[in-house]
């Protein structure tokens, strides 16, 4: 019994010291950045990422490092990652827009309808866990309303139960769909950024096939399908083509 307690105690101390070490790493990376030692800062940040610290701030900072290293494409990639995790941060928005403006390809975007952009703003309000808890709670309340409706002999209670139930069922449904949308957006890696400076898009997944067009580093493309070393992508103007896998990186 005592032995187990000891091990628990030491384990918790180790955990704490590890987290202190991470804090030191963060401070060190910041210092390196301020001293313009971008390569070293990048190494520290990537190390943190590899340890599983999945943080919009790190992505944002890495984006800054790449921008300072003159790699606009990767800067865009990391700003996009940061934006995905935290769409409401004004610094991330600013730097992303700033670097996107330096991307050379001008592609006519098909644009989104009013409903879709409104819905996007809605589901980005919370992370999927918040959404799903909200959905579950409102579902439970809906069930209570339903129970009230069925079991009460009082007309007032029955009416109250019915309307409350219908309303909360709607809330639960919307929350659930939002949770799914946000979860998919965060985990499905549907988009990628071109990281090579200049890349040919082919009509077929073959090196010898015809070039459809040429795109440049930093362009955001949608991943549709994967076939060995080739990926079928869609540009924002709706055109589809194949690109070699190592030319792009998932957001």
């Amino acid at each position: 019994m005592m032995k187990r307690l000891y091990t628990l105690f030491f384990a918790s101390i180790l955990c704490m010291s590890a987290s202190f070490a991470q804090n030191e790493d963060v401070l060190r990376a910041e210092q390196l950045y301020e001293n313009q030692l971008y390569d070293s800062a990048l190494v520290v940040y990537e190390n943190l990422l590899n340890q599983g610290y999945h943080n919009a701030i790190f992505y944002y900072n890495i984006g800054n490092v790449y921008y300072k290293k003159n790699d606009v494409a990767r800067a865009i990639l990391y700003y996009e990652k940061a934006f995905l995790l935290n769409p409401h941060d004004s610094d991330i928005q600013h730097n992303l827009n700033f670097t996107r403006a330096q991307q050379v390809d001008k592609i006519e975007s098909l644009g989104h309808g009013f409903v879709k952009s409104w819905y996007t703003r809605l589901y980005r309000l919370f992370n999927p866990n918040v959404w799903i808890v909200l959905s579950i709670i409102s579902f439970l309340v809906f069930l209570s309303g339903l129970a009230l409706f069925f079991f009460s002999s009082q007309l007032l209670y029955r009416k109250l139960g019915f309307f409350l139930g219908v309303f909360l069922l709607l809330v639960s449904l919307v929350s659930y769909i939002s949770a799914q949308s946000r979860y998919t957006e965060l985990t499905a890696h549907e988009y990628a950024i071109v990281v090579e400076p200049t890349v040919s898009i082919k009509t077929e997944p073959l090196e010898t096939s015809k070039d459809l067009t040429v795109i440049h580093g930093g362009l955001k493309v949608k991943i549709l399908q994967e076939k060995q070393d080739w990926i079928l992508i869609r540009l924002s103007d709706g055109n589809k083509g194949w690109i070699e896998k190592h030319f792009i990186e998932e957001i």
Binding site: V26, Y53, H54, H94, N129, A179
Partner: peptide, 26 residues
Amino acid sequence: VTYFGNDIRFIKTNPSSLKKKRTYIL
């Protein structure tokens, strides 16, 4: 190119919390 500002904004220093990768209920 239209410049939104003169440069990118500075890095975010001292993040208050170090979060490991979130596990999603879904």
